[in-house]
Every structure is written in structure tokens, then in C-alpha cells.
Write a protein that binds this DNA or RNA. Structure first.
Lengths: 150, 150
DNA sequence: CTCTTTCATTAGCAATGCTAACGAATTATA
DNA sequence: TATAATTCGTTAGCATTGCTAATGAAAGAG
């Protein structure tokens, strides 16, 4: 009786190609972000601030999977560019809350729009069916990332 | 008669989520590469050398979408670590051919194995069906990247 | 033979990552 | 309450990785 033995190499094959595709995809798109005048780390942190709301430096560092000293410098850069501000915490004087400025919100949304338009333009070669399948797989991937724990 | 109007926003929605998923995926996996003792740029260049064979510095820079001065430094780092060597070109003395050493091949394959195993382990939560669909979409994505031109 | 082009390097700047060490504030404990 | 331990952010200093501009050496064009 033919059982279906789950092929144990399958997930590794997908993992390999997925990794490669992700690298090359981001390498292409990165240049669009840089066109905004801010580097990728600042842009990404700003994105967290805009969509997640104000938060402490430590929380922001954790969200970006970066150590606090690194985030201190990223925030300093954002502040110098007028895209975010440090706000003292009224309850705990050790904490510093970071908040995106209106200018920061604007720049993020413009950059996001440009980047997405650029990427979407290159997805136009796909059939509607392939695009739909890709959309579902990206959703699958989002689920994987959600449950990720080292 | 109900025609199917192609939704023009669809590709942008996919683009947006795809971008986000790629960022978060690589952020997670990056740490595995760094565990090999070499940074991501060196690791990636070494990968091109191992799978694409020896090539000139300029070709390697183009493959990695990086300017020649940057690649000069990456190769110097690889050479210091004994992972690649510069070989003078017999036909054209301006050119420098770069070749991965056996040690470089070994390190790359070990790192690759570790990284893929790590990523694959997190894909294990997926059903066989979802995994298969993801595999197909990654292939679709590879096709998109192949035809990419700025 | 001279001029131009090509290829790699050097020099110097900026952004991003890290660890170690510190200072200030808060919390826990003796 | 006074002191010790912990937490939070910063500073200092290092390495990697990206860029442009300028240099040098070799090859090709005229």
C-alpha cells in the first residue's frame, strides 16, 4: 500500500531558494530607499515608529533586532534630519520615548510609495494567477515569521 | 456579462507585503551567517565564487551589485582569512582573477548548511501543501528577478 | 608613438553593527 | 532608611561595508 512519505529535503530546498530570492530582491529595492536621503536602518526604524506609534529607545531597538547603542545612533540621525524627536518619559526618567515628526511620517510614506511602486512594476510581468499565488505564499511566510522564536 | 476587471492595486499589495517579509526573514537568518566568523558581504561574495567559479574582481563586483572599490576590500578580507586568492590573469595584466580556496569552499558549505537547516526548521510548521505552494512562488519570484532590469 | 580607455587600488567619508564601560534613575534588600 | 543590584540610555572605540574621487598600470585606438 503506497503511503506518502513526507520528503524531508523539501523544506530545505525551499529554504535555500527562498533565502537567495530574498537577498536579491532586497538588494534591488534597497537603492530606492536610499534615494530618500536616509539609509536603510533609519528608514526601517522610522517605519516602526510610524506604524507602531511612539515607543522607548529600547523597545525600538528590540523591534529592529539591534542593540541599544546602535539604536541610539540611528535615532540621533533621525533627529538631526528632523524626522523623529526624543521625548522624556514623565514616569521614568531613565526612559526616552521616540516619536516620528510629521516630516518623518511624510518622508516615510513617500519612500514607501516609491519603493512599492517600483517593486510592483516588476511584478507586472506575472499572470494574474501567479500573482495571486505569490500573494498567498507571502501570507504564509508572514505566518511563519510571526511564530518564529530562536 | 461579468468580465473580470484586473485589479490594478493587487500587485502593489503583494509588493508591500513581500518587501516586509523579505526584510524580516533576512534579519532573522543573518545572525546564522555571522556565526561563521565572516560578515554578510564576504559570505555572499564567497558564495558567488564557489557556485560561479573563478572570475575577475570586476565581474564579482557586478554580480554582487557593488562598486569595484568595495569589492577590492571584500576580497582582501577573504584573502586575509584564507578563503580566496588573487590570481594574476595571464592574458591581461590589469585583471585579477579571484578564486575560492578549498577552505573557502568548506566554510561556505558549512555556513550554507547551517543557515538552510535553521530556516527549514522554521518552515516545518507548514503543511505539505503550503510548503509546495511556497516553493512554486519562490520559483515565480526567481523568474521575476531574472528579468529585472532598471 | 601618443592618447584614450579599462581595471584595480588607495584614500577618505558616512552609515551600521558590535562590546565594554559609564552615569543616572529605579527597584530590591538588608 | 540606607545601601546594593538592576535597568536604561549613552559614550567610546572597533570592524564591516557602502560610496566617490583620484591614482597607477596595462591595453587598445589613432
Amino acid at each position: 500500500m503506497p503511503r506518502k512519505p513526507p520528503p524531508p529535503l523539501r523544506s530545505e530546498a525551499v529554504a535555500d531558494r527562498l533565502h537567495s530570492a530574498a537577498i536579491h530582491l532586497l538588494r534591488r529595492v534597497r537603492k530606492q530607499d536610499i534615494a530618500s536621503g536616509e539609509g536603510p536602518a533609519r528608514f526601517s526604524a522610522l517605519s516602526v515608529l510610524v506604524f507602531g506609534g511612539p515607543m522607548t529607545l529600547g523597545q525600538l531597538a528590540a523591534a529592529e533586532q539591534v542593540k541599544p547603542p546602535t539604536m541610539t545612533r540611528i535615532v540621533s540621525g533621525l533627529e538631526r534630519s528632523g524626522l523623529a524627536t526624543r521625548v522624556p518619559d514623565s514616569k521614568d526618567a531613565r526612559r526616552v520615548r521616540i516619536r516620528a515628526t510629521p516630516k518623518g511620517v511624510r518622508l516615510l510614506q513617500e519612500g514607501r510609495k516609491r519603493r512599492i511602486a517600483y517593486l510592483a512594476a516588476h511584478l507586472e510581468i506575472l499572470t494574474e494567477k501567479d500573482l495571486a499565488a505569490l500573494g498567498k505564499s507571502v501570507e504564509t511566510l508572514r505566518r511563519v515569521l510571526e511564530q518564529w522564536h530562536d
